[in-house]
């Protein structure tokens, strides 16, 4: 603040207020009392540790007790924690109380200097750098400069290249699932093939594609293949002829993997025939081919065309005709 500014100030700085003595500074009895308080706090900490050790060794791990606020709770875990909490907390409280009542409480003043270096130091610094650069002579030797630039630029590539084997390329993976024409639908869990009659009107079932014997279902498969079967009365569908032909006797099949960000679309509301994704509440209308009627999802859930095979079990009529799950750059959405 400049001097002229100062004159405009309404009040001049009255300076540091006078130091007031605490009771413990002037009254030895008060000081003695504070000392006792501090030692009581430290003792409480010691008791906390004893509680901790007691709980660790002697309270069996499966002891359940009833406490008013906590309902039924595990005593081993509770007293272990309370002991540790006490042991730590009272050390802290003791130290702070000690500092506040018995250690000196004189405020002291220290002075600052500007962060900026003095002008001559700055000039000297710049000169040193320039000097150093000149001695290296990079400016005079363009050949070195360019080849060094090349070398440094290239050496940065190797760590990036080293990361290449982190994973395979996606290829066409994201567009494909294990559903083929004729793949049987099997229950999840259970892996049993299903007939239309197994699902009553109003019912829902989660299914997976049947795997040939010996092939193991991994989570990667479930993340792409999971399908929800829903059965409603056929006249309730509001579908074009093609999509209607993908259903079977009122049974319609959708990918269970949300077209928004891939959560499992798990909530089916029977009365409204809406499917709801619990992640961001995208809501899909089952009667209209899972059209999005609410929420951030931008696409309907992909529909799987189904029919029955000659043994009467539900099968896929064709693979999904689009990629399931969240969108990606190369997703061919027609």
């Amino acid at each position: 603040m400049s001097e002229s500014n100062r004159e405009l100030e309404p009040l001049s700085d009255p300076g540091l207020p006078e130091h007031l003595h605490r009771k413990t500074d002037v009254d030895p009895l008060a000081a003695k009392k504070a000392e006792r308080q501090v030692s009581i706090l430290f003792t409480l900490s010691a008791l906390g540790t004893i509680l901790f050790v007691y709980a660790y060794i002697w309270i069996p791990e499966d002891t359940l007790i009833f406490l008013p606020l906590f309902n039924v709770t595990n005593a081993h875990q509770l007293f272990l924690g309370l002991g540790l909490a006490m042991a730590l907390f009272f050390i802290g409280l003791g130290a702070v109380h000690w500092a506040k009542t018995l250690m000196p409480d004189h405020e002291v003043v220290d002075y600052r200097k500007e962060q900026r270096s003095k002008d001559e130091d700055r000039a000297a610094f710049v000169a040193t750098v320039k000097d150093g650069a000149a001695q290296a002579g990079l400016g005079r030797r363009p050949l070195i400069k360019r080849s060094l630039g090349l070398a440094l630029g290239l050496v940065g590539l190797s760590p990036i290249l080293l990361l290449r084997d982190l994973g395979p390329l996606p290829e066409n993976d994201l567009n494909e699932t294990n559903w083929k024409a004729g793949t049987r639908l099997v229950t999840d869990p259970g892996d049993r093939p299903i007939r239309p009659s197994d699902l009553e009107v109003g019912g829902v079932a989660q299914v997976q594609p049947e795997f040939p014997a010996g092939k193991v279902r991994h989570l990667d498969d479930i993340a792409q293949d999971s399908v929800l079967l829903i059965r409603i009365r056929p006249e309730e569908f509001n579908l074009d002829a093609e999509r209607l032909s993908w259903t079977y006797e009122g049974i319609i099949a959708f990918s269970k993997i949300c077209s928004h960000m891939g959560c499992a679309v798990a909530l089916y509301e029977q009365s409204t025939k809406h499917l709801l994704c619990p992640c961001h509440q995208s809501t899909f209308d089952v009667t209209r081919a899972a059209k999005v009627i609410f929420g951030p999802a931008a696409r309907p859930l992909p529909q799987l065309a189904i029919t029955v095979d000659n043994e009467g079990y539900l099968v896929a009529k064709a693979p999904f005709n689009e990629a399931v799950g969240p969108s990606f750059w190369g997703r061919d959405s027609g």
């Binding site: 906590f70 875990q77 509770l78 272990l80 924690g81 309370l82 540790l84 909490a85 006490m86 042991a87 730590l88 907390f89 009272f90 050390i91 802290g92 409280l93 003791g94 130290a95 702070v96 000690w98 500092a99």
Partner: peptide
């Protein structure tokens, strides 16, 4: 002291 207080409070939360 304050470190122990913070630790103590965290342990208390962890316990209950």
């Amino acid at each position: 002291g304050f470190f122990f207080i913070v630790f103590g409070v965290t342990a208390f939360l962890g316990a209950v």
